[in-house]
Design a protein around this nucleic acid. Structure first.
Lengths: 153, 153
DNA sequence: TTATATCCTACTAAATTAGTAGTATATTTA
DNA sequence: TAAATATACTACTAATTTAGTAGGATATAA
């Protein structure tokens, strides 16, 4: 499971992606309201995202946050990893949170590890090719579908 | 990430699967030693696995645990779910640990949910077709590969 | 200079996970 | 039938992680 922190981070980045063209910083309080994220918590998250190089900030009145990279360049897998969430099911197959499996006699010959490796690869394959733009695109498609489904009633 | 409990459960079931043909119960202390699992913790886990219908037990001296189903019928996804681990990355796409997403205006139109749904399906596809037997088979193949790799040196 | 924003350190609170203690109960074997 | 040995089960405790907050420092615009 992803942490709330990670989920909030993704939602906040999506909100910034939506107004990417405007080149205007968005206030934390605005993002918090739009995405229903606790304000102070979001503050900590945005700070983190800045340190990780996802967003830039402007201080003072009229300040706020904005995306540094194009929404097409920000991949879901990057955001997840940067905000602390390992994608793998076990530490012994995690690229970024690797830990040796204390019980295992030999990791190379572990059947469970072998399966979990396959799951990790399948997950990463999806997450690393999906950008913020892709998510927004999905959203548009879903909205269209949803509207049609409703008119049919 | 899977819980240790889940990992231990899988390992213990694999150990039982290896001697499935013998039709003899295996003691907790034996399993604990083979798999390097804290004894008392494993006790609680085995009890749980019995309540969930994965294993049977025999009390008293010469007692122990044994698989109730054939190792081919016990799927990884079942064990993971039974021992408390959700497979999905977010509660809003979890089959067995579903929770509404408090922040979401509409789950049906959520782009993030849509991606995470895809990841879940990919993971479940693998986990629900992999049985204990399959894992043991993988182990054998890996051992063979490993040996060859070593002789080549 | 005031208002308003981010920056940043340091907490606290809640929840979850990992693991243990100790006793009751069942079964084999001498 | 008593001793030995196993699981059954309840009820904890300890450690770790996650979620979220407090409050002051710093920067900027009007």
């Amino acid at each position: 499971m992803l942490q709330k922190k990670t989920k909030y981070a993704i939602k906040a980045l999506l909100t910034l992606a939506k107004v990417y063209k405007d080149k205007k910083p968005v206030k934390i309080s605005e993002i918090a309201e739009i995405d229903h994220i606790p304000r102070k918590f979001l503050e900590a998250i945005m700070l983190d995202l800045r340190h990780q190089g996802f967003v830039g900030s402007k201080m003072g009145a009229t300040g706020g946050y904005y995306l540094i990279k194009h929404p097409e360049e920000i991949m879901l897998s990057d955001v997840i990893r940067a905000t602390g969430g390992p994608i793998a099911l076990l530490p012994c197959v995690s690229l970024n949170f690797y830990e040796t499996c204390a019980e295992c006699v030999s990791e190379e010959v572990c059947g469970l590890r072998n399966v979990v490796l396959e799951v990790r690869d399948a997950s990463i394959k999806i997450l690393s090719k999906t950008s913020l733009s892709d998510i927004l695109l999905r959203e548009k498609k879903l909205e269209k579908k949803h509207k049609i489904a409703n008119t049919k009633r």
